[in-house]
Design a protein around this nucleic acid. Structure first.
Length: 471
RNA sequence: GGUCCCAUCGUCUAGCCUGGCCUAGGACGGAGCCCUCUCAAGGCUUAAACACGGGUUCAAAUCCCGUUGGGACCA
């Protein structure tokens, strides 16, 4: 049994796209499950659109989602000579030929053929002319088989038949000496001993063009798997209009990498009714058999739900770590420095059920960072009224009488006061909540006090009373 | 235009290969109720789908053919 070798081969023409991450993810899962090798290859032969920043973005994105590769990153621009050598070999073997047809002529002939109702493929004019490339401006074409058929047994879609009659003699080297996509891919996959080519569905019809090239070059033909596309809510290919498509944008929006991976893998793959998977589980349970054959619509709401699930269930220390850069980004650098790791973790535990993203969490955590807390005018006017001031003062006095904070004890004292005053719980709880957090919504009051500690609780309560008396 | 792919609730999907267990299950989102110091979380309930038409069969979401509709690639 030969070792599984798969690859992810993005073009560095922008940021790392969500669709790309999913393709990488399926390859990675398969490699890890099979104890195989995952290769990262940068397809940058389109020199006009490729940039170094994009390469960095790809690497950064892959690292963030935790998809580690075993070989690479290779860059195709560093391998151009390999492609030329292999092209020349095909020429020597009589499996390629020089073509001097000009683009305009080809276009004209194609239109003509179409008008006559014929297929618009290359008419093979130069196929048997035995031309050389003396002028240095000829393109090299592959002599594609014209008879029989190519059978692709796709890992996902099953057996697909392609008739060779309709196959074109593809250009493999352009007149400028640069290889075309379909050729460089085959040379690389061949030389890198790729056993399973798993890529987007948009490459499906490239497969019957590539298979004969593998054969002509003497490479074993890999297995192929074609993943369905990801669509936007209008069922059009996912693009910026549907919201963020860059993986790093999701980092900035406060998504956890594990949540991202979980969502993306479930978008097109299933394991019965299970929704949440650890990485280890994914590696164990993944199979091509349950990869969906049809395109899937990207659903931000479900992603948000999964993210919330991960925020709730991930180790709080990990969430706290991920939260730090966002807190700093929100201008809370000093506050973050003055809180201990344990303290921050405690805050995460306090609010994790309420925050669906880390960005939301920043806002939830904010009231618990300083000594005092800001209370908006409007909120204060509504809850910190002179009418409640006396009750708040009584509460303060009773809390002050307690030497140390004890959740149970303070809650008892609180409820007793409510009873004595003949009011409802909420009538006292809301003003206290506002005094302690500056908000009308917060975690449970006594959890809040626990996190604030005795001193800050009393301090904020006093401030609240002061404000209520002034109203 | 040619070739190829695809088709179950609004969305992600289970079931399809190996027909009967499907009065089609789960999840997100929606609606309602419960819990409740607020907001969440949680629990319970609920609406919501086999694209259409033929066939095969005692029986079809499941197999076959066609139609329609989406999509990809080629240039």
């Amino acid at each position: 049994m030969t070792q599984v070798r798969v690859r992810f081969a993005p073009s560095p023409t922008g940021f790392l796209h969500i669709g790309g991450v999913r393709t990488a993810l399926f390859n990675w899962l398969f490699a890890r499950q099979q104890k195989g090798v995952f290769v990262l290859r940068i397809e940058d032969t389109d020199r006009t659109r490729s940039t170094d920043e994009s390469i960095q973005a790809i690497i950064e994105g892959m690292k963030w989602v935790g998809l580690d590769w075993d070989e690479g990153p290779f860059r195709q621009t560093e391998r151009v000579n390999l492609y030329r050598d292999h092209a020349m070999r095909l020429l020597e073997q009589g499996q390629a030929y020089w073509c001097v047809c000009k683009a305009e002529d080809l276009e004209a002939r194609r239109k003509e053929a179409e008008a006559k109702g014929l297929s618009p493929k290359y008419d093979g004019r130069c196929r048997n002319r035995g031309l050389t490339n003396q002028a240095g401006d000829a393109a090299l074409r592959f002599k594609a088989p014209q008879e029989g058929e190519i059978v692709v047994d796709d890992l996902i879609k099953g057996k697909i038949l392609f008739d060779n009659h309709v196959q074109d003699d593809l250009i493999i080297l352009r007149s400028n000496g640069y290889p075309t996509y379909n050729f460089s891919v085959v040379v690389d996959d061949g030389l890198m001993n790729i056993t399973h080519v798993v890529r987007g569905d948009d490459h499906l019809t490239n497969t019957p063009r590539q298979v004969p090239i593998f054969q002509a070059l003497g490479f074993p033909v890999p297995r192929f798997g074609h993943l369905p596309m990801i669509l936007g809510s209008d069922k059009a290919r996912l693009s910026k209009r549907h919201g963020a498509t860059s993986i790093m944008a999701y980092k900035e929006m406060g998504y956890l990498p594990d949540a991202m991976v979980n969502y993306l893998v479930r978008l097109g793959w299933s394991y019965g009714d299970q929704e949440i998977f650890s990485r280890q589980e994914l590696i164990e349970k993944f199979s091509w058999k349950h990869v969906q054959t049809s395109a899937a619509v990207f659903n931000p709401e479900k992603l948000l739900w999964i993210n919330a699930e991960y925020i709730k269930s991930s180790p709080p220390t990990r969430v706290a770590q991920a939260l730090v850069p966002l807190l700093e980004g929100a201008g809370l650098r000093d506050e973050v420095r003055s809180i201990s790791d344990d303290g921050l973790t405690q805050l995460v535990v306090l609010v994790k059920e309420r925050a669906k993203t880390l960005v939301e969490m920043v806002d939830w955590v904010r009231p618990y960072l300083g000594q005092s807390v800001a209370v908006e005018e409007e909120v204060a006017r509504k809850f910190l009224t002179p009418a409640v001031a006396p009750t708040l003062s009584k509460l303060l006095a009773r809390f002050e009488a307690l030497p140390a904070f004890s959740k149970q004890q303070w809650e008892e004292v609180f409820k007793q006061l409510v009873e004595e005053e003949g009011i409802k719980m909420g009538q006292l709880a809301q003003p206290v909540r506002v005094a302690l957090t500056g908000r009308t919504a917060s975690p449970g009051l006594f959890e809040v006090m626990e996190v604030l500690g005795r001193n800050r609780t009393l301090f904020r309560l006093r401030q609240g009373i002061e404000r209520a008396s002034r109203m």
